[in-house]
Amino acid sequence: MTQPPPSFDEAFAAQLEQLLHWRRDVRHFDTRAIPEDDIEHLLRCASLAPSVGNSQPWRFVRVHSPALRERLAGHVDEQSARAAERYSDAKQREHYKSLKLHGVREAPEIMAVFCDGEPVAGKGLGIATMPEMLDYSVVMAIHTMWLAARVRGIGMGWVSIVDPKFVGGLLDAAPSWRLIAILCIGYPCEAAATPELEERGWQAREAWLERTFEK
């Protein structure tokens, strides 16, 4: 007999919306280790994400080596310093420099997330005209993991100020793998009621109606 789908009541719906409101891009981490069972749970949840053609192109690389982690942190610092020079306005440039943009050194878990551009699974379904759907599938897996982490009180920060080729070489990634994200994972130092970039006056969340159009 086919098992009927679960029914989600109004209380669950309200909790889900609350979870979405409380997802945070975390940069300040407690150094406590995350239990291995929790890390495995997050990876299992990520694997439930939808993917084009069911190709499951995500590839998670856990960076355990202290030497690799320090090289990665130094690289992020260098790229961040270069990015600061993009701002011609001196005040905005200094504001950018004052932001804490990563927790690569202190987060107990670092993952590099790649997209396999040539997955065997999926048999090429859905990517003939939009091959970037593979990348989008990996982003879905990251977001799924992000929400699963928040439920367990675990924070996640997405680091994007990197040179993908450098990171791929550093981690000896396969030629068909494209870097999507560096993830810092750990317990947040504090539960922030307001997202940090908003709290620091960088950018507030804007009304969803301003991002919705009709034709």
Rank of each mutant, 00 (worst) to 15 (best):
V26S: 02
R27C: 00
R62H: 12
P50E: 04
T31R: 12
Y87G: 09
M111R: 05
A81T: 05
A112H: 03
N54Q: 03
A49E: 01
A112R: 05
A33L: 14
M111Q: 04
R105A: 09
G74Y: 03
R69Y: 01
H95I: 10
R27Q: 06
P108Q: 11
A90R: 11
G122T: 01
H95C: 12
S88Q: 11
V76S: 06
G53A: 04
E70C: 10
A121Y: 08
R69W: 01
L101I: 09
K97E: 15
V104T: 09
A84E: 01
L68V: 12
H95A: 15
R86F: 09
H64W: 09
M111D: 01
H28D: 15
Q56Y: 02
L125E: 08
Q56V: 03
A84W: 00
E40F: 09
S98N: 12
E36T: 08
D30R: 15
D38E: 13
Q92G: 04
R32F: 02
D38Y: 13
P66F: 10
S88K: 12
V26L: 08
G122E: 02
A84R: 04
S55W: 05
I127N: 03
L68F: 00
Q92R: 12
K100G: 06
A90P: 14
R62F: 08
L99M: 11
R93M: 08
I110T: 07
K123R: 11
F60A: 05
C115H: 13
G124D: 05
A121F: 07
P108M: 12
R105V: 02
E78S: 12
S88V: 14
L125V: 15
E85K: 14
V120Q: 11
G117M: 13
E109D: 11
R32G: 15
E70P: 10
